[in-house]
Lab assay of single mutants.
Amino acid sequence: NITNLCPFDEVFNATRFASVYAWNRKRISNCVADYSVLYNFAPFFAFKCYGVSPTKLNDLCFTNVYADSFVIRGNEVSQIAPGQTGNIADYNYKLPDDFTGCVIAWNSNKLDSKVGGNYNYLYRLFRKSNLKPFERDISTEIYQAGNKPCNGVAGFNCYFPLRSYGFRPTYGVGHQPYRVVVLSFELLHAPATVCGPKKST
């Protein structure tokens, strides 16, 4: 009989979020998941679920829940969905086509923008091939755009693969920082350890 609540607040209220190319993952297990707390949290810009209804989450049990978190621009949030393409979905964070879970995003301009620009948040701009679902690539190898080998030196046709967002408070909404948490639900042939409040007695 599990009684402790799942530590969703640790994920959602973290002081610093990860850059999207180096997205953070927390495994959540052996706890009671009260999703209504999240669902009623006012400032969400997006709360979209795939393969599961957000209002039914509290009735369900899962083997594991993974909480992935990172920061992207407002106009990139739409790429955090199954079957998407674009710089983020291709080179930074890719969801599987059969994704079961929820994508939760909110504007973090007050936290993550600075006058003069916040350059701490990076994304991958160049990559030889697209990421596989949930693949994480933190390499900083110089990207070779031409035929000539770069030998690890940036220059003509040789690019550092990461780019900084440089968030400023005055940017338009599409270019403002958004914090994103992706909850993915794993249902294995194993005992369920993460259940909603109704199922955990």
Rank of each mutant, 00 (worst) to 15 (best):
N1R: 11
I2C: 11
I2N: 14
I2E: 14
T3D: 11
T3L: 09
T3R: 11
T3I: 09
N4Y: 09
L5H: 12
C6E: 06
C6I: 05
C6H: 07
P7F: 08
F8L: 12
F8C: 03
D9N: 13
F12Y: 04
N13C: 07
N13M: 09
A14Q: 14
A14N: 09
T15N: 09
R16F: 10
F17P: 05
F17G: 04
A18T: 07
S19E: 02
V20T: 04
Y21Q: 05
Y21F: 12
Y21M: 07
A22P: 01
A22V: 06
W23R: 01
N24H: 12
N24W: 04
R25Y: 02
R25Q: 03
K26W: 07
K26M: 12
R27F: 08
R27V: 15
R27S: 10
I28H: 05
S29G: 11
N30Q: 08
N30R: 08
N30D: 13
C31N: 07
C31H: 06
V32G: 07
V32E: 09
V32C: 10
V32P: 05
V32W: 11
V32F: 10
V32K: 11
D34C: 07
S36P: 07
S36F: 06
S36T: 13
V37M: 14
V37I: 14
L38A: 07
L38M: 11
L38K: 04
F41R: 12
F41S: 12
A42I: 10
A42T: 09
A42F: 11
F44V: 11
A46M: 14
A46T: 15
A46L: 14
A46I: 13
F47E: 05
K48R: 14
C49E: 00
C49K: 03
Y50C: 01
G51D: 06
V52P: 06
V52R: 05
P54I: 15
T55P: 09
T55Q: 13
L57E: 06
L57A: 07
L57I: 08
L57Q: 06
N58H: 11
N58L: 08
N58M: 10
D59K: 12
D59V: 09
L60T: 10
C61D: 10
C61M: 09
C61N: 13
T63W: 09
T63M: 09
N64R: 11
N64L: 08
Y66G: 02
A67E: 03
A67D: 00
A67T: 06
A67Y: 05
D68I: 04
D68W: 03
S69K: 04
S69Q: 05
F70P: 00
F70V: 01
V71P: 00
V71K: 03
V71E: 00
I72W: 01
G74V: 01
G74M: 04
N75F: 15
E76D: 15
E76Q: 12
V77L: 15
S78M: 09
S78G: 13
I80M: 05
I80F: 01
A81M: 07
A81K: 08
A81Q: 09
G83E: 08
Q84P: 03
Q84K: 13
Q84W: 07
T85V: 10
G86H: 03
G86R: 04
G86N: 03
N87G: 10
N87C: 14
I88T: 05
I88F: 03
I88R: 03
I88G: 02
I88E: 00
A89Q: 03
D90W: 08
N92P: 01
Y93G: 00
K94A: 08
K94L: 02
L95Q: 01
L95Y: 02
P96R: 06
P96N: 08
P96Y: 03
P96T: 06
D97Y: 09
D98W: 08
D98R: 11
F99H: 03
T100S: 08
T100W: 08
G101M: 01
C102R: 03
I104E: 00
W106F: 11
W106K: 06
N107T: 05
S108N: 04
N109S: 05
K110R: 12
K110T: 10
L111R: 13
L111T: 04
D112M: 03
D112L: 03
D112S: 03
D112Y: 03
K114V: 10
K114T: 12
G116D: 11
G117H: 03
G117E: 02
N118Q: 09
N118Y: 05
N118R: 05
Y121W: 05
Y121E: 02
Y121H: 11
L122F: 12
L122V: 12
Y123L: 15
Y123H: 12
Y123I: 15
Y123T: 15
R124G: 00
R124L: 00
L125R: 04
L125K: 03
L125Q: 10
F126R: 04
R127P: 00
R127F: 01
R127Y: 03
K128D: 12
K128A: 12
L131V: 10
K132C: 07
K132A: 13
K132Q: 13
P133K: 05
P133F: 07
F134G: 13
F134E: 07
F134V: 05
E135R: 08
E135A: 09
R136S: 07
R136Q: 10
I138V: 15
I138Q: 12
S139I: 05
S139W: 05
S139V: 06
T140Q: 06
E141Q: 11
I142K: 04
I142T: 08
I142Q: 05
Q144T: 07
Q144R: 10
Q144Y: 04
A145W: 01
G146A: 06
G146L: 01
G146T: 04
N147I: 06
N147E: 07
P149M: 10
P149E: 12
P149T: 06
P149A: 13
C150S: 01
C150R: 03
C150I: 01
N151P: 09
G152H: 10
G152M: 10
V153Q: 15
V153K: 15
V153H: 13
V153S: 15
A154H: 06
N157V: 02
N157H: 02
C158H: 02
C158K: 03
Y159C: 00
Y159A: 00
F160T: 14
P161Y: 03
P161R: 04
L162M: 07
L162E: 00
R163Q: 15
R163I: 15
R163L: 15
S164F: 05
F167W: 05
F167R: 02
R168Y: 03
P169D: 04
P169G: 05
T170F: 04
Y171E: 00
Y171K: 00
V173K: 14
G174D: 10
G174V: 05
H175I: 00
H175T: 00
H175D: 06
Q176Y: 02
P177L: 01
P177K: 02
Y178M: 14
R179G: 00
V180C: 08
V181C: 05
V182N: 00
L183Q: 01
S184A: 09
F185W: 09
L188V: 13
H189E: 15
H189Q: 14
A190Q: 14
A192R: 14
A192P: 14
A192N: 13
T193I: 10
T193N: 13
V194E: 12
G196L: 10
P197Q: 15
P197G: 14
K198L: 13
K198C: 11
K199R: 14
K199S: 14
S200H: 14
S200T: 14
T201Q: 15
